Simulated assay, not measured.
Amino acid sequence: MKITQSEFIISAVRPSQYPVDALPEIALAGRSNVGKSSLINKLILRKNLARTSSQPGKTQQLNYYRVNDMVYFVDFPGYGYAKVSKTQRELFGQMIETYIRDRKELKLQLLVIDMRHAPSKDDVLMYHWLKHYNVPTCIVCTKADKIPKSKWDKHVKVIKETLEADPRDSLVMFSSETGLGREKLWEVINGAIGHITEIDQ
């Protein structure tokens, strides 16, 4: 994907605020501090478009980023952060479920998991939620550069077994530091949105 344009569009909390131009959407879900913003920035080769934060739980809306006037990345609030109130967590859950259940433009969900650790209960719940609503899903294992290559297979096996992953779902090992997995993930995304193009180096 040769990136010619990328921009933040809106932080939405309800369907009436979603973009109406019918572009395909790729959504990202994962725990707070799992590296979703860094993943977006590496995919589009921008340093700071998706703002990374040292404060977990800061994202509290669906953040829309438009790329090449061709696709949106939709960044969900991170889950599993203790300082977010129970009421706020419930509102997040309702907002995300409404989006997953009803958004026809959603073509692929990226479930972002820190490869160093087994998926959390929240990760498992999210994955099963996606399966329940028949949402096409790709499991993205971030921070792969933090693990020796000799242990990658072991960590991937733990992630698949903990999630009870559908073998038909793609799994991509990714590093925002080294760019590992960027081309493969763009191939998965392009396949989901029906776009065929060269990957930008």
Rank of each mutant, 00 (worst) to 15 (best):
E90F: 09
T52C: 06
P77V: 02
Q88P: 09
L45I: 09
V84M: 04
L49V: 11
Y81M: 02
G80Y: 04
I96F: 00
S54Y: 05
G80L: 10
G93R: 10
P56F: 13
Q60I: 14
K42W: 07
N41A: 08
T59P: 09
V74E: 07
A82Y: 03
P77G: 02
V84K: 00
V74T: 08
Y65V: 11
S54L: 12
I96E: 02
L62I: 10
V67D: 05
G35T: 08
A82L: 08
R89V: 03
Y79V: 08
G93N: 14
N63V: 02
Q88K: 15
A82K: 03
E97P: 00
L43I: 11
P77R: 00
Y79T: 08
I44T: 10
V74C: 08
Y65F: 15
P77S: 07
S53N: 11
A50K: 00
S53G: 13
V71G: 05
E97C: 02
Y72L: 13
I40Y: 03
S32E: 09
Q55I: 15
Y64H: 06
M70E: 15
R31Y: 06
N63A: 06
K86H: 12
G93W: 05
L49I: 13
F92M: 12
Y65N: 07
L91M: 11
S37H: 04
Y79H: 09
I96K: 00
S53Y: 08
R51I: 11
T87Q: 15
V71N: 04
L43M: 15
K42M: 15
V71C: 11
S53R: 10
Y72D: 09
Q94P: 03
F76D: 01
R66N: 08
I96N: 01
S53C: 12
S37Y: 05
Y65E: 09
Y72C: 12
S54G: 13
Y64Q: 04
N48S: 13
S38Y: 11
A82I: 06
I44A: 11
R51V: 11
Q94F: 10
Q55A: 15
D69S: 12
R66P: 03
V84D: 01
N48T: 09
Y81P: 00
Y79F: 13
Q61N: 12
I96R: 00
G78K: 03
R66V: 13
S32I: 10
T52G: 10
V67L: 08
V84I: 13
A29H: 01
N68K: 13
G57F: 06
N48W: 02
D69M: 07
S85P: 00
T87R: 14
Y64T: 04
G35W: 02
L43P: 04
E90R: 11
R46F: 03
P77A: 06
L43N: 10
N33G: 07
N33L: 07
Q88N: 15
N41H: 05
Q88E: 15
T87H: 14
S85W: 03
K36T: 07
K47Y: 03
Q61A: 14
K42E: 13
